[in-house]
């Protein structure tokens, strides 16, 4: 019973995080703040949902595979958002001075 409660609660919490991430990605006007939000809030929501599912499944091969996905995504999500922000910065996309003039 407790396992069900914790699992469903974690999934609900993770969905809330992901919803917050999506809302702030759409609501923010400036690109670089969107990248930070995506890297942080979205990944935390992802991790929470997967932890909830792991709790629901108990000890099995299923949980081991979900753990693999979790660890891999935790490693690569920051990397991919870093690559995006880095490429935007190198390509000369500056936001502070002209809001939307320097788009390429």
């Amino acid at each position: 019973m407790i396992q069900q409660l914790i699992g469903h609660g974690a999934i609900l919490l993770g969905l809330l995080f992901i919803a917050t991430g999506i809302y702030s990605v759409l609501a923010y006007r400036e690109f670089y703040s969107r990248v930070v939000i995506t890297a942080k809030v979205d990944t935390v929501g992802f991790i929470t949902v997967l932890l909830g599912i792991m709790v629901l499944q108990g000890f099995s091969f299923f949980t081991a595979k979900v753990l693999i996905i979790l660890v891999f995504e935790m490693l690569t999500a920051p990397m991919s958002t870093h690559a995006i922000a880095h490429s935007a910065y190198i390509a000369g996309y500056r936001v502070e001075r002209e809001a939307d003039d320097e788009q390429h």
Binding site: I11, G14, I18, G21, I22, V25, F31, R34, V35, T38, D42, T43, F46, V49, L50, I53, L56, Q57, F62, V66, I69, E73, A77, S80, T81, I84, A85, S87, A88, Y93, D100, Q103, H104
Partner: peptide
């Protein structure tokens, strides 16, 4: 997305949503 990087960001977003959806579906 005004810039091309926003579009790339959106793609990353969608792929992580789809991964979570697949895991829930597998569950």
């Amino acid at each position: 997305g005004p810039t091309v990087w926003d579009r790339l960001l959106g793609m990353g977003l969608i792929s992580s949503k789809i991964i979570v959806a697949i895991v829930i579906f597998a569950h």
